[in-house]
């Protein structure tokens, strides 16, 4: 196995094992921590693919902001941290075969054809930042802006729901 192969195996193992722990472990803070570890593993995979911009953004946003926000929310929730949370519901045994079937379908379709792998040998020299920016702001401008607009709407919605109206309250 090449060095890249070993690195891929290690990173993939970290990602998958910690992702499994996220949904099985009973302690919710540790669950969030394993989620962060899983995100870091994915960032490592991005680096293997020479997509270091994506890797840095992955760590910055998913590990540094979203998971921290989850931890923040968990810590503000009373009585949740010491409690052992059940990760399964009564639908577990129905959901399991469905999930496995989904996995089998995905593997089947991905194995059906070989995807062209572009080794991109000069990616490290040029960097992926500029092509990514060109793609986001030229052909994919509309979906990009739409996605940010939807996120904005979600943010505003969250504030509206969370903020209880006080009669006669002035802002």
């Amino acid at each position: 196995m090449t060095g890249q192969g070993v690195a891929f195996a290690v990173l993939a193992a970290i990602t998958i094992i910690s992702a499994l722990l996220v949904v099985t472990i009973k302690n919710i803070v540790r669950s969030a921590l394993f989620l962060a570890l899983s995100f870091v593993g994915v960032a490592g995979l991005y680096i293997l693919l020479n997509a270091e911009f994506l890797a840095a953004v992955q760590v910055l946003i998913y590990v540094g902001a979203i998971t921290v926000l989850m931890l923040f929310a968990i810590m503000l929730t009373q009585q949740i941290m010491s409690a052992k949370i059940s990760q399964t519901t009564e639908w577990f045994w129905l959901a399991l075969p469905m999930a496995l079937a989904m996995l089998a379908t995905l593997i089947f379709f991905f194995a059906m054809r070989t995807y062209p792998v572009n080794p991109a040998p000069d990616a490290l020299a040029v960097g992926t930042t500029m092509p990514l920016a060109e793609a986001l702001l030229k052909p994919y401008l509309l979906p990009f802006e739409l996605a940010s607009f939807i996120l904005l709407a979600a943010l505003v919605g969250a504030i509206v729901i969370a903020r209880e109206e006080k009669p006669g309250a002035t802002d």
């Binding site: 270091e52 911009f53 840095a56 910055l60 540094g64 921290v68 923040f72 941290m81 960097g127 930042t129």
Partner: peptide, 25 residues
């Protein structure tokens, strides 16, 4: 010499909070 140096710094500085949060918890 990483060509995304600034993002690397921002990404890592965003991880610093974990030590404090985890210690506190």
């Amino acid at each position: 010499d990483v060509n995304i140096g600034i993002l690397y710094i921002l990404a890592l500085s965003s991880l610093g909070v974990y030590g404090i949060v985890l210690a506190g918890w």
